[in-house]
Every structure is written in C-alpha cells, then in structure tokens.
C-alpha cells in the first residue's frame, strides 16, 4: 500500500524554481529519506506535504488524500516536525503535550496520549519545568514526543537530529526506529549520511529541485560503486 504518492510536483517562488517536477512513492511502514545539498528542495517538499505551502503544479497523496484538495484530512494523518522547531516557552513540557493532545482526542484517551508523550520524552521531573529552561536535546525529545504521541500514520521529520550532541542524536534515532517498528510511515530529511543509512529503508537524492537517484541504501551504493551513502551523495550530485 502506498502511504505517499508524489506526482510531478513543482514549486516555484516567483521566478525561482524550488522543486522542478519530482515524483516518488513511499510504502506504508517505510522509512524514506530525502537527502540533498542545501537549497535542493527537501524542506520545500516536506512543507508542501505538511500542507504549510501550496503546490505550483502536480499533487501529493497521503494515504489517498490530496494535499491540494483535502489539506485538513491530510493534517489528521500526518505529524510534522520542522527543523529547529521550538515549543511555547511559557508552557511546561507537560502543558505543551496537553495543549497538542486537545486537537486529537478527549477524555481518558487524551490522558493516555499525554502519558505516552511523557514516556517518549523521558524528561523525568523536568517535564513540569518551563520549556525555556530546556536544553536543545530536551526540547527535541519533547517535540519528537509531541510528533508521535498522537500515533500518526505518517511522520515528516526535517533534520531531526540537527545540532544535537552524539548521545542525544543516538537517542532520537532509537526513538525513530521504535516508531518505524510500530508501523508509522516516516519521511525524513537529513544531512547526516550515517543517520540516513542507519534509519532509511529507501532514499531519494534531490538536487536543484530534481530527484537524481532513488533506491535502497544498498542499491544506491552498488549503483554508484560507493562504500557508503556519503560517497553516493557526492558522486550523484557531481554527475
């Protein structure tokens, strides 16, 4: 079953072409990585998929729902975590999770959702501290918890470990692995090639708004005669 179908998607900002007609599919339960240099169109693609930006032409179907025609239905399925996102500084971690949960469910279900979020965030007593007292790693854990406590069918993660130390990044990657094991379809972008290889079932390399290569990490390494994804990336972009 296709979780995401991207069909000839174009996005322009005035005269500047951000994404120049890309198409790809993501299967249900898959972890799919979008990699590419800065300004290649990764974040634009994720933002359009999250219904934050409009498409210039083409379409994206999330579990059969069009981001063009049914954005609200798409928003019920997805969970988007932007790069360098923050939480409301005047709320505590718990209050932030409670605030988000109110848009998804009510009553006992809502309490269970918040409990689940707190377990994922694993912030201990600090869950009741104000968000503006959190370190970057703690904030990221809270936001990951926010993104997956709602049990989304489709999670969109933009540079999820960007700026985190080794320990925090490893913990976040483990959380993502657990998400995937629970059957959540994940589309992520990253500059960390080790992370991409570790997490992703399949990859698409995007450069100057076009997909230049697509496949499993092993397929891509074979195709480009590379020892790792970093080499694949540099060779694909250079060609």
């Amino acid at each position: 079953m296709d979780a995401l179908v991207v069909k000839d998607f174009h996005k322009s900002y005035g005269k500047h072409v951000g994404v120049d007609g890309i198409s790809f599919t993501v299967k249900h339960g898959e972890v799919f990585g979008l990699i590419g240099p800065n300004g290649a169109g990764k974040t634009t693609t994720l933002r359009v998929l999250s219904t934050l930006l409009s498409v210039s032409s083409g379409d994206m179907l999330v579990y059969g729902r069009s981001v063009v025609d049914e954005p609200k239905e798409v928003r019920k399925i997805i969970s988007y975590l932007p790069e360098d996102a923050g939480a409301y500084k005047h709320l505590s971690g718990r209050q932030y999770l409670e605030f988000i949960s109110k848009f998804f469910t009510t009553g006992d279900d809502r309490e269970r959702m918040v409990e689940r979020g707190m377990a994922i965030a694993d912030l201990g007593e600090r869950i009741d501290s104000k968000v503006d007292t959190y370190s970057k790693g703690m904030t990221r854990r809270l936001l990951i918890a926010r993104a997956i406590m709602t049990r989304p069918k489709f999670a969109i993660l933009d540079e999820v470990t960007s700026g985190l130390d080794v320990i925090n990044a490893a913990e976040i990657r483990n959380i993502i692995k657990d998400m995937a094991r629970e059957g959540v379809t994940i589309l992520l972008s990253s500059h960390n090639m080790f992370e991409v290889e570790y997490l992703c079932d399949r990859l698409a390399l995007i450069d100057e708004g076009r997909i230049v290569a697509e496949g499993t990490p092993e397929e891509l390494k074979r195709r480009y005669g590379a020892a790792n994804i970093e080499e694949v990336f540099t060779r694909a972009v250079a060609s």
Binding site: T51, L52, K72, P82, D84, F103
Partner: peptide, 14 residues
C-alpha cells in the same frame, strides 16, 4: 522564529 507556528498550522484544525 521558534517555528511553533509551523506546528500549529499542521494540526488538524481550520
């Protein structure tokens, strides 16, 4: 700046 708006706009609400 904190990108909380992006999160807000992707919630299932009009």
């Amino acid at each position: 700046e904190n990108k909380t708006l992006e999160t807000l706009l992707t919630l299932p609400v009009n």
